[in-house]
Design a protein around this nucleic acid. Structure first.
Length: 431
DNA sequence: TGTCCACAGGAAATACGGGGGT
DNA sequence: ACCCCCGTATTTCCTGTGGACA
């Protein structure tokens, strides 16, 4: 009897979700779920709405000489995250490739995406993989060998070779070697005409580059400004049309999301996230997306930001935050002194089996937490009774609980993971 | 006005760990 | 497999400070 009751309940729930008339095609609210052709389709609509028009024109002008057989200089794209550097460039490259094909110009385009920070060796290795010149190596192959393979992979190609190096600033340790290879050695070594396109979200990226490379690097720069509210409205409208049903959105909602987003970041991805979150809320509530739901969604995203931040923060910072929350729960006061927090911190470490640090380093963690807005610290001078650092926790209770859960979960996971790796290691050694 | 509290936070020293080179 | 190097985390040491108190 009981199981069938639960069954109906589950079925009802699923029916409700399946029959929702807000979200029609959730994939269009998350780029990662779209296949390439769909992405292009969305992009086309976005560009047709004259968003990033200026940048597209600049790109066309820059690459136009190719059509006449000339050799344009390298190019650098600057702009914050989510300003469409990658998308614009990829979209442009697609069109341009088609054009060249029609005119019988030999053109090869590659997109080297250095999404995560990596050393020079791995960046060059990735490039080699991209050109099918090599497989993934961890070690054992010298840099020179990899460079040689890249060069021989391109030895036959005599046309234009556009290499789009995305997020260059992610190349750590010997960025100079990486750049030197691309800028000085590669163009000499291959018969084709190389055009490098760099994208970076750090404007000062060039400053810590070897001046000798810099002098070699004839480069043109193109700046991507954050999206303004109008641009974001276009982008959002397209998403709404693709992903949601006709009447899902109340008037003013798109304008509101665009205004909020352009005001504090101008990042299109975050704007679409806000739309997605609002749609989910509306779906759950069975209503249309209203202005107040947008507010609610923005608040939720803000909350998630905190717990995401703490999840990825260094362990010491997490432990410090854990100690603060414990202290807050134990006492009635709103402000805490370093030494009482430190006591709690030591207890926390003992319980979770974490290595504790000296009080000087602990204070550093407190300052970090202040920097990220988890707490507020200030130095309090008490006259002849010395000075003290005062820490205040000013987040609302619900959020504090959420952060607390995140931290605890993290520590438990860490424990489990370490014991698991120990298990798998021993399993491996047995095999 | 001067003293002196008691800890913050800067600087230097040192430990640690990961990755590349051989 | 081993070593070495380099960047980061942590410790150790120490100086400087705002204001209550006499």
């Amino acid at each position: 009897m009981e199981t069938s009751h639960i069954k109906t309940k589950v079925f009802d729930e699923m029916e409700n979700v399946a029959n929702n008339d807000i979200i029609q095609n959730a994939r269009y609210l998350n780029d990662e779920q779209l296949i390439h052709s769909e992405q292009l389709q969305v992009l086309e609509e976005i560009f047709n709405a004259n968003v990033r028009n200026e940048e597209m024109t600049q790109l066309s002008r820059h690459f136009a000489p190719i059509l006449k057989g000339n050799h344009p200089t390298h190019l650098a794209l600057w702009g914050k995250t989510g300003t469409g550097k990658t998308l614009t460039m990829r979209f442009f490259m697609g069109i341009f490739a088609e054009m060249c094909q029609r005119k019988g110009i030999s053109l090869r385009l590659e997109h080297l995406n250095l999404a995560t920070s990596r050393p020079c060796f791995r960046a060059i290795n990735d490039l080699a993989c991209l050109l099918n010149a090599s497989k993934k190596y961890k070690k054992g192959v010298s840099l020179v060998e990899l460079m040689y393979r890249i060069e021989s992979a391109l030895a036959e190609f005599k046309g234009y070779f556009v290499l789009f190096v995305d997020e260059v600033d992610n190349v750590r340790t010997d960025q100079d070697a990486f750049m030197s290879f691309l800028v000085r050695r590669l163009p000499q070594a291959i018969p084709g005409k190389l055009i490098l396109v760099f994208a970076s979200n750090k404007l000062n990226w060039r400053d810590n580059l070897d001046p000798r490379i810099l002098s070699f690097l004839k480069i043109r720069e193109l700046l991507f400004n954050p999206y303004n509210a109008i641009d974001l409205q276009h982008i959002l409208r397209i998403r709404v049309k693709k992903a949601l049903t006709e009447k899902a959105v109340e008037p003013g909602v798109i304008e509101k999301i665009a205004a909020l987003s352009s005001h504090d970041h101008g990042d299109a991805r975050q704007a679409v996230d806000l739309l997605a979150r609002s749609a989910e809320l509306a779906q759950a509530a069975g209503t249309r997306i209203s202005l107040s739901l947008v507010d609610q969604a923005a608040e939720e995203i803000e909350r998630d930001k905190y717990s995401d931040m703490i999840r990825t923060a260094p362990a010491q910072m997490q432990a410090a935050m854990g100690a603060i929350i414990r202290t807050a729960k134990k006492t009635q006061q709103k402000r805490y002194k370093t030494d009482e927090l430190y006591d709690q911190y030591l207890a926390f470490c003992r319980e979770t089996g974490m290595k504790s640090v000296a009080i000087r380093a602990f204070r550093e963690s407190l300052n970090e937490l202040d920097l990220y807005g988890f707490v507020r610290t200030r130095v309090l001078s008490r006259g002849r009774y010395g000075r003290a650092l005062e820490v205040a926790l000013e987040l609302d209770r619900e959020l504090v609980d959420k952060i607390d859960r995140t931290i605890l979960l993290n520590f438990h996971l860490q424990k489990k993971r370490s014991s698991q790796t120990r298990l798998t290691n021993s399993a491996h050694s047995i095999n």
